[in-house]
Simulated scan of single mutants.
Amino acid sequence: MPNASALLVIDMQNALMAIAHRPEETVAAIAGLRARAKAAGVPIVTLQHQDVTELPAGTEGWRIVAGLEPGPGETVVAKNSADSFLDTGLDTTLRELGVTEVVVTGFATEMCVDTTARQALSHRYDLVLVEDGHTTSLRPDGGGPFVPADQSIAHHNEIFRHIRFAGRRTRVLPAAEVDFSV
């Protein structure tokens, strides 16, 4: 049975892209996916983080970056944690749309992207993690407590290539290989 997909675009906001690793490449990959999803009639759901002190709603930093702004009729879900399902209407929205598979993109790889991807599996959705469609924050020279950004992205892609959830299909694909027509 074919999957009914939805494209999830997580936290691609001005303030976050200002601290992101390879933001232009990530935005371009997601923009291409958005165009293909829209052409195929696949729902696009934009997740937008808000925090009263760090990312207040309505501010320039809170806004979705140019090129990924939600279009007319697209769903925007406000969230305030790394889990896009927690205390939001995301699951209800996806169920109402008849979605069985989520195509996950966005910021930040090891926080909101990872948490939302795992929660999607726990909510019984199949998963496509777009290997070049998620990114993380810039890392200070000399390392610090985080691994380098490219390594973190590669690490999470590899985890999702091997993670297993009973009854769920999980794939990691480059944006160019995501096919919304199947």
Results as ranks from 00 to 15, higher is better:
Gly58Tyr: 08
Gly67Ser: 11
Leu47Val: 13
Ala28Pro: 05
Ala176Pro: 03
His21Thr: 11
Val178Tyr: 05
Pro43Glu: 09
Ala120Arg: 05
Asp51Trp: 09
Ala20Trp: 12
Leu16Cys: 03
Ala35Phe: 04
Val77Asp: 02
His123Pro: 03
Pro2Arg: 14
Ala39Val: 01
Ser152Phe: 05
Asn3Ile: 00
Thr170Glu: 04
Arg63Asn: 08
Asp87Trp: 05
Met12Asp: 12
Ile159Ser: 07
Thr26Met: 15
Ser84Glu: 06
Val113His: 01
Asp11Ala: 08
Ser122Ala: 13
Arg164Ser: 13
Val128Trp: 03
Thr135Phe: 06
Thr92Pro: 02
Gly32Leu: 08
Val27Asp: 01
Ser181Arg: 15
Ser5Ile: 00
Glu131Thr: 15
Val178Trp: 03
Glu54Ile: 11
Ser181Val: 11
Phe180Val: 09
Ala15Glu: 04
Pro72Val: 09
Glu25Met: 13
Thr88Phe: 10
Leu68Pro: 07
Asn14Trp: 00
Arg171Ser: 11
Thr109Ile: 11
Gln50Tyr: 10
Cys112Ser: 15
Asp87Arg: 14
Glu60Phe: 11
Ile163Asp: 02
Leu68Gln: 03
Asn157Cys: 13
Ala15Asn: 10
Asp11Trp: 08
Val182Gly: 07
Leu8Gln: 07
Val27Tyr: 08
Asp87Thr: 07
Asp132Tyr: 04
Lys79Leu: 10
Ser137Ile: 13
Ala18Tyr: 00
Gln13Ile: 00
Val102Glu: 06
Val42Gly: 01
Val104Ala: 02
Ser152Arg: 15
His162Ser: 14
Ala28Ile: 02
Thr75Leu: 15
Ile44Leu: 13
His21Gly: 03
Thr116Cys: 04
Glu25Lys: 14
Val147Thr: 11
His49Ala: 10
Lys38Thr: 13
Glu60Tyr: 07
Ala117Phe: 05
Pro23Ser: 04
Ala154Val: 03
Asp87Ala: 12
Ala175Gly: 01
Thr53Ala: 13
Val178Glu: 03
Leu86Phe: 14
Arg168Thr: 09
His134Cys: 05
Thr136Lys: 09
Met111Lys: 11
Arg95Trp: 00
Met17Glu: 05
Glu74Ser: 11
Val172Leu: 12
His49Lys: 01
Leu7Asp: 06
Ala4Gly: 02
Val178Pro: 04
Phe107Lys: 01
Glu25Gly: 15
His155Phe: 15
Ile10Pro: 07
Asp132Val: 07
His123Trp: 10
Gly73His: 11
Leu86Lys: 13
Leu127Gln: 01
Ala39Gly: 00
Ala20Met: 15
Gly71Ser: 11
Leu68Asn: 10
Ser81Tyr: 09
Tyr125Cys: 00
Thr46Pro: 04
Ala35Arg: 13
Ser81Trp: 07
Leu173Arg: 11
Pro23Glu: 06
Val172Tyr: 11
Val104Gln: 03
Val147Cys: 02
Cys112Leu: 05
Val65Ile: 14
Ala20Gln: 14
Asp83Gln: 08
Phe146Ala: 12
Gly167Ile: 09
Leu94Glu: 08
Thr75Cys: 10
Arg168His: 06
Ala176Tyr: 05
Gly73Val: 03
Ala82Cys: 12
Ala35Cys: 04
Thr135Met: 07
Phe180His: 12
Gln13Pro: 07
